[in-house]
Every structure is written in C-alpha cells, then in structure tokens.
Computed example of a mutant assay.
Amino acid sequence: MSVTGPSLWDLHLQGRNEEALAGYLKEFERTGHLSSLRNRAGIFIELGAFAEALEECQRLRSLEDPNSRGDADAVREGICHWWLDQPGLAVECFRYGLSAGYTNTASVMAPSVLLYAGLRLNDGAVCSEAKRVLRSLSRPKSIGYPRLIAPLLLGRATKLEIVRLVERHTNPKLLGRARCQSDFYLSIDALQRGNMAGFEDHCRRCAGSPHSRLEQEEASLARWEIDRGFPATPFP
C-alpha cells in the first residue's frame, strides 16, 4: 500500500512555502502546465513578494495563448503593478482583462477592478470605460450573484439585494467565499458614493475573511488599502 505525502498546495497551506514554490517550479519544468506558474504567482502574492509574483505573471503571459488567457491572470498581473506603485501599468492589465478569452465572476471582475482603479486615480475616462463594459453586462434579467455586481456598480441594484443573494448560499465554504468577494465590490460601490466609512469597512471585511486566500484578486486590493492607510492620494 503506497502512502502519498502532502500535495504542493498542502505544503503552502502548512506554511512550507519554499518547498511549495520549488515543487511547483519542478512541476512546471516537468509538465509545462501553466497552472504551476499560476500557483507560484499566487503564493508570492500571498507572501507580499509582488516583484517575484510579477515575474511569474509575465512569464505566464508570454506562454499563454492570448485567446485563452483568463481575466484573473490579467487582473493578478495588474495587482502586482498596483502594489509596486505602477498604476499606469496596472490599469493596462485591468483593461486587458476586459477582452480575456476566459472570464471568472460572470465577467464582472475586470471592469469592476478597472472602475476601482479609475476612482482611486480620479480618472474619469477610465471610470467611463469601465462603466461602458458594466452596462453591457447589466441586462434587465441580470439577476443572481455575481452577475448583479454590474447593476450594483451602475446604481441599478442595492447593497441589500447583493447581500440577500449572497446569503442564499447553503454551502458554508461557498458562502464564505461569496461574502469575502462581495465585500470588495460593495467597497467600490461605497467609494463611488463618497461613503468612505463604508469603503473602509468593506475592505477590512474582505481582507480579514478566512476565505480571502481563495478570493485573492479582490482581497489583495483590499489589503493594499489597509496597508497604505486608505490614502486620499494613492500615488503621490
């Protein structure tokens, strides 16, 4: 009877990150699976090693078929630039995510994050671009979570509607993830309404969620706000 040891992701969860990172590198060299690079980038982001994470994201982009590149890959690369005080490059990555061949979160993640960047940079053109895409996703029948995020950020749905949909999850893990994720989008809604107390509260809820590891894109931006003290001018 064979006994298998912990998986590479289990090593990461146990805090054995150097082993996990080395293991994923060997796995990539052996198999060429791009998921190994994604996992390395994810670990580096969680460790706050954004320069190293960016290297993995860029390596991944150089190897990916552009037609199958996911919005999460583009957003994750943009987040690294955001943390490295390169907001222009971050916006370029978020914008690239708008036309990704594969999307998560009902296609609303990239335009929502682009809207967040536009709001924080006080860039009306970026905000308008993001809202044009959100309008294309906000149909009369845009019900259900996470699709209702688009109407929320356009002022066509309310926080209460989002919360009610999130709380319908019966699986505890999915409920926790949805709460974490939705808190970030609710923070964007609060930000554009000028409700800074609500913005900060939802960011703290998102970043502090025990499920934030699985909603890394949203939680990483929420953590940036907390780390920088919710600056009035993000990049002086």
Rank of each mutant, 00 (worst) to 15 (best):
L11V: 14
H81R: 05
E18C: 07
C57D: 11
S36F: 09
L84N: 07
G70R: 08
F50E: 01
R76T: 06
R61Y: 12
E52P: 02
L13C: 01
A22R: 10
L8P: 07
W9L: 10
H33Q: 14
A49W: 11
A74I: 02
R61V: 14
W9I: 01
E77G: 11
D85Q: 02
G23E: 07
R59M: 07
S7L: 08
L63D: 09
R76P: 01
A53Y: 06
F44A: 06
D85T: 10
N67S: 11
A22E: 11
G48N: 03
R76I: 10
E55R: 13
N39I: 04
D85A: 14
L60H: 04
R76D: 00
R30A: 15
A53K: 11
L34I: 02
C57M: 13
L63F: 03
G48C: 07
L8T: 05
G78Q: 00
N39M: 15
H33L: 10
D10G: 15
L8W: 10
W9E: 14
L47R: 11
L84T: 04
G15F: 12
Q14V: 07
A53C: 04
G48W: 13
G15M: 03
I79A: 02
L60R: 10
C80S: 05
R59D: 03
L34G: 09
H81W: 15
G23K: 01
L21N: 01
K26G: 14
E46P: 05
E46Q: 14
F28A: 00
